[in-house]
Each structure stands twice: as structure tokens, then as C-alpha cells.
């Protein structure tokens, strides 16, 4: 049996690159937030230091098996999601496992991390965790609907569910799906605001309200694993959106530029807005984003 070494290389390096990029974006976010609030802010590598510190904690309390498995599920879901997204267009190394029909698969696997986190948080027995989990799952129902609408519109328009086919369609700047199907992009980017969990949609992890919600009983290595998973998942979502709407990227520099611009949309929105209540958040997702989603489908069908 012949081993495809470039694929092995991709599997080894994709999560590492995803982690480094995601964690640096997190640090830059803190820096940008600080500058907007007229502060100096932490260095851009602050989140890396936080994660090293959390992994080097000497005591790690747990309340049962599920608390062990919760963060593991979360990171499994993040890495799996990442593996099924072509990171670099037409590259033999970073194509990973993307196959035909992977958009529908991605819709399923992206929810898995939240469910893992919910199971882990449920074991801890902290009331704040339970409130956070219920809020998180309600919000998930909120933003998944416009997101699925947008993806269905694109699937119908291009008669494919494969990310690789979608990338092949967008071979020129003018053929990016953001221009071909703008309403789908609007619906998806509004859903994306909810997915990233920045304000005004940070009802799940509301530190001043429910003491950081689901991870409130997680400390040390568990929290470190969750932050790692969050960094990887952030990068995975950004690459997915870049692939679907912005024509993917042929090299890493283009990828970094595109994902960073995309990432700044929820971050900059988050800085200027306060937090929604849970029902306001869901009501928002079921109004304008859903309207744009339906509009996208109607435009495609008729």
C-alpha cells in the first residue's frame, strides 16, 4: 500500500496552523478591543500564554467522567470540522478529507462541539452551567436556521453540495459567491455573528451575568482544552466562510488576509454593542437573517 505523504503532512500540520492562527487572532482581538476602549492592551501572544498557563496548572478538579469527555468532544469536533474543509485551494497537502457532499456533513459535525460542551457542563452540576447550556442550545436553534437557508440557496444555485465544486466555480474575482448570491451571504454572515459568540450575541458566555456559563466549573487543563478547541474552531469556521463566499485562497497570505477581514466583522460589531437577552437574540436571528435567507432561496428558484 502506498502512503500519500502529502496528505499525512496536511493532517499533521493543519490543526497546528489552525491553532496558532486562531489563538493569534484571539490575542489581536483583545488588543484591538483595548485600543478601541482607549487602553494599551495585552500583547498579541497573550492568549498563548494563557493557554500554556492553564495546561501547566498542577491540580485539575473534575466531577466525573463526562467532564473529562466534554472538552475532548469539543476538540474532536473542532479538528474534525477542520479536516473536512479544504484550507488551501487545489493544494495536495491541505485538501485533507473534503469529499463530495461535505457541506451537509459539515452542518452536522459543527453542532457536535456544542453538544459535547453541553454534556460536560451538565456533569458539573453548577446552576450557571445549566443556564448557559440552555441558552446556548436555544441560540443554536436561532442561528442555524438562517445559516442552513443560506447554504441551501447556494446548493440549489450551483447544483452541488461539495466545497471543492464551489471552489471550482469561483475561479475569478467577479465570480465569488458573495457577488453571485449576495442575499445568501447576508443571511450567512448574520448567522456567523451568532456562531462566533461575540457581543451582542454572547448570551452563552456572559461573565457578568452567569459567571461564564458552561465552562464555569472547568479549570486548569479542561479550560485549556476548551480554549484550544475554540481557537481551532474559529479558524475552521473562518476558512469555511472564505471557501464558500470569498473564493478560497491559493496561498496562506491570501487566506490570512481574507479570514482576518471576515473575523473583524463579528469582533468590531461586538465592541460597539451591549449584550442581547436570549429571547432578543433568537428573535433577531429569526427576523432579518431569516428574511434574507428566504429571499436568497426565492431569488435562486425564480
Amino acid at each position: 500500500m502506498e502512503i500519500n505523504w502529502s496528505a499525512v503532512l496536511g493532517i499533521v500540520f493543519t490543526p497546528v496552523i489552525a491553532f496558532l492562527v486562531g489563538v493569534t487572532y484571539g490575542g489581536l482581538t483583545r488588543r484591538i478591543t483595548a485600543r478601541i476602549q482607549n487602553r494599551f492592551g495585552p500583547p498579541f501572544y497573550q492568549n498563548i500564554l494563557d493557554i500554556i498557563k492553564l495546561y501547566s496548572k498542577e491540580s485539575n478538579i473534575n466531577h466525573g467522567v463526562m467532564q473529562h469527555l466534554g472538552p475532548v468532544f469539543a476538540i474532536t469536533a473542532s479538528v474534525t470540522t477542520l479536516f473536512f474543509i479544504p484550507v488551501i485551494k487545489d493544494s495536495p497537502v491541505f485538501t485533507n478529507f473534503s469529499f463530495n457532499g461535505d457541506l451537509i456533513f459539515l452542518l452536522y459535525i459543527m453542532v457536535f462541539g456544542s453538544l459535547g460542551m453541553a454534556l460536560g457542563a451538565g456533569q458539573t452540576g453548577n446552576p450557571n452551567s445549566a443556564i448557559g447550556v440552555s441558552r446556548g442550545l436555544s441560540q443554536l436553534v436561532g442561528y442555524e436556521v438562517p445559516f442552513v437557508m443560506a447554504l441551501v440557496a447556494i446548493m440549489v444555485q450551483f447544483q452541488t453540495t461539495s466545497l471543492n465544486d464551489l471552489l471550482a466555480v469561483q475561479d475569478h474575482f467577479t465570480k465569488w459567491i458573495i457577488f453571485q448570491s449576495p442575499f445568501a451571504f447576508l443571511a450567512a454572515i448574520l448567522a456567523f455573528l451568532g456562531m462566533m459568540g461575540y457581543a451582542p450575541f454572547d448570551v452563552v458566555i456572559a461573565p457578568a451575568e452567569i459567571a461564564s456559563g458552561p465552562p464555569s466549573e472547568f479549570g486548569g487543563k479542561y479550560l485549556g482544552l476548551m480554549l484550544t478547541s475554540r481557537s481551532i474552531f474559529t479558524f475552521a469556521k473562518l476558512v469555511l466562510f472564505t471557501d464558500i463566499f470569498l473564493g478560497g485562497a491559493h496561498d496562506f497570505i491570501t487566506l490570512i488576509i481574507k479570514t482576518f477581514i471576515l473575523y473583524m466583522i463579528p469582533v468590531l460589531t461586538g465592541i460597539v454593542f451591549p449584550r442581547f437577552r436570549t429571547e432578543q437574540s433568537i428573535r433577531f436571528f429569526w427576523s432579518w437573517p431569516l428574511f434574507f435567507g428566504i429571499l436568497a432561496i426565492l431569488v435562486v428558484v425564480f
Partner: peptide
């Protein structure tokens, strides 16, 4: 200086 508030004692 990397000093930041944490929400719960566990963290």
C-alpha cells in the same frame, strides 16, 4: 500585564 478578571474561582 496579562491581569484579567475571571468569572469563577475554578478558573
Amino acid at each position: 500585564f496579562g491581569i484579567r478578571g475571571s468569572a469563577t474561582p475554578r478558573q
